[in-house]
């Protein structure tokens, strides 16, 4: 029991070997943001190992899915590889494995080939764009800060308008409160001013 467990653990911490590191390297260099395998894989340490989302931990059913995904050479085949995350699976579905393998020599073309329509985390920034910018495609609070800000500003415009209105109204109120106090404390001096 302990031995199997230890074996599991040694797999678990082996980590950091990756399947197609060309894309990760490109994204990292292009964006200047450090990234890891969690961009496309289920596990941040890549597919090799024995923890969750790694090849060493798959059930027979999951292995079938993995094999199905591995043979999805043409585009348009929906796959559910257990070692990939939704973005990884979608890349293979959209462009097909053949094209994907070709792109290893030109990782910068992946964005173009994958296209800018899909936005899996609906944070307003297309997956391909997030790939270029080194941000997470499946986390809606992660993205280029400026773009995220503008997108959310549009999403929450009603709330933004309400709070701006509230602030204006509050300002109007406080200003008049100030004037009111000023006026009432001036009572004495005004009486002296109009003799």
């Amino acid at each position: 029991m302990l031995n199997t467990f230890l074996l599991l653990l040694t797999f678990l911490i082996a980590g950091s070997s990756f399947a197609y590191p060309e894309f990760q390297r490109f994204s990292q260099n292009n964006s200047g943001r450090p990234i890891n395998c969690a961009m496309c894989h289920a596990n941040g340490d890549g597919p090799e190992g024995a923890s969750r989302g790694q090849i060493g931990s798959l059930t027979p059913d999951e292995l079938n899915k993995l094999n199905a995904a591995r043979s999805a050479f043409a585009p348009g085949v929906p796959i559910q590889s257990p070692i990939l995350n939704a973005f990884g699976n979608n890349i293979i579905t959209v462009i097909g494995k053949t094209k994907f393998l070709e792109l290893r020599a030109h990782p910068e073309q992946l964005a173009e080939v994958y296209g800018y329509q899909s936005d899996l985390d609906s944070d307003g920034i297309a997956d391909a764009q997030e790939y270029l910018e080194g941000t997470h495609t499946l986390n809606n609070v992660h993205g280029n800060p400026m773009k995220l800000f503008l997108h959310n500003l549009k999403t929450f415009r009603l709330h933004v308008i309400l709070i701006v209105l509230a602030t204006i109204a509050g300002f109007y109120g406080f200003s008049h409160l100030l004037n009111g106090f000023a006026a009432s404390s001036n009572t004495k001096s005004s009486v002296e001013r109009y003799p």
């Binding site: 969690a38 941040g44 997470h136 986390n139 933004v160």
Partner: peptide, 27 residues
């Protein structure tokens, strides 16, 4: 304080603090 709240609220609503970090750091 009103102005401060306006800025703070809009910022918090629209700009997630997490987006300023590379995502491997958020695991």
């Amino acid at each position: 304080w009103g102005i401060a709240f306006l800025v703070l609220f809009i910022l918090s609503l629209c700009l997630p603090f997490d987006s300023l970090f590379p995502y491997p750091l958020l695991e």
